[in-house]
């Protein structure tokens, strides 16, 4: 249902002001030269020229700690109540196209066999306004995983900054049109234009089909150890990743009242697979690194038909030991 519009930067401000009162708006904000998604209520607070946020926006669907239900003990029995659903719609304003495409994976993953209620409710109320990339850095590799800096995959509206402080707007979904309708007169109709000259150049670093095949075929290889010697087993890569979905379920509280909570977890942790008996199916870090890479490019393809990497480069930027998923894929490409 693509249709195309233009909006000036000034009008974008007015558009934000039209959206703000009725919705919760999450947008990138600068804090100490790094960018984070935060709830914003002023257009001026939004960072429009950033390369990438430290953490992804997946937490609007799948927060770091998510209450599944609360329990209270009464007369030897338990009363269980569910957290009340959110009322306002959530708009993520200005996420990058790679992040937007991660929501395609997330919704596929969480709603495939068993529909996750919390996530389904949030997804229904989620609107994504993405912003094509003007700039990229060394860590970006969206073009290597079948996307590009102006992709509209997963977005409801996509904005691309073209000449004269004007944004080219692609209305991708019905939901996008709904947003436009808040203040339709701010937009001007236009024809489809070629975005390629307005967007960042992200060189392709590997061929994804080739990578899938190579990674698929190699399980036992000394290269896994060699490539992962630097890995120290923290959880940054998974926590920063827009498509990492692993979680842990824990009770917070006492036997009388508390909540059952779902927390992020990472396959890089030693405890992730460790049995209560002490047996660990993946006892060393290279196996955990292998699992991460193979999950991204092989296992998720087998299970969902989608690779679970969108090329945002967050894991590369935030890794304290400079582990590099692109380098790993390239190594196996060369085998």
């Amino acid at each position: 249902m693509n249709n195309y519009k233009l909006i000036t930067k000034q009008n974008l401000h007015s558009f934000f002001d039209a959206l703000q009162p009725k919705n919760t708006i999450i947008a990138p904000k600068e804090i100490n030269k790094k960018y984070y998604f935060k709830p914003v209520d002023k257009f001026e607070d939004i960072a429009l020229d950033y390369i990438q946020t430290v953490l992804s926006a997946k937490s609007v669907l799948f927060p770091r700690s998510d209450t599944l239900f609360n329990y209270h003990r009464a007369d030897g029995d338990y009363n269980i109540d569910e957290p009340s659903p959110i009322e306002k719609n959530t708009i993520v304003f200005g996420m990058k196209p790679c992040d937007a495409s991660s929501f395609v994976y997330l919704s596929n993953f969480f709603l495939k066999d068993y529909q996750d209620k919390n996530i389904k409710e949030r997804l229904e109320k989620l609107y994504i306004i993405s912003l094509s990339c003007k700039e990229a850095d060394n860590a970006c590799f969206c073009t290597s995983v079948g996307s590009n800096p102006a992709s509209t995959k997963g977005s409801d509206l996509n904005l691309t900054l073209i000449e004269n402080d004007t944004y080219y707007v692609e209305v991708v979904t019905e939901k996008g049109q709904e947003l436009i309708n808040y203040s339709a007169d701010l937009f001007q109709d236009t024809k489809e234009i070629d975005k390629s000259k307005y967007i960042a150049n992200v060189p392709q670093k590997f061929d994804v089909e080739q990578a899938k095949q190579n990674i698929d075929s190699i399980f036992e290889s000394p290269l896994w150890v060699k490539d992962s010697l630097a890995c120290l087993g923290c959880g940054i890569c998974a926590y920063a990743c827009p498509t990492c979905t692993c979680f842990d379920i824990q009770d917070i509280g006492s036997q009388f009242n508390g909540s059952r909570v779902r927390n992020w977890d990472s396959c890089a942790f030693d405890l992730f697979t460790k049995h209560a008996s002490g047996h660990n199916p993946r006892p060393v870090q290279s196996q955990r690194w292998r699992n991460r890479i193979k999950h991204k490019f092989e296992y998720s393809v087998e299970n969902l038909g989608l690779i679970s990497c969108v090329g945002c480069g967050r894991c590369i930027r935030s890794c304290p030991t400079s582990m590099n998923i692109v380098k790993t894929v390239q190594i196996f490409q060369g085998v």
Binding site: Y36, P39, P63, T67, T90
Partner: peptide
């Protein structure tokens, strides 16, 4: 508050 809240906006750690 020990127990995390599910209110959106607080979903983003801030």
């Amino acid at each position: 508050e020990n127990v995390s809240s599910n209110k959106i906006g607080e979903l983003i750690n801030d």
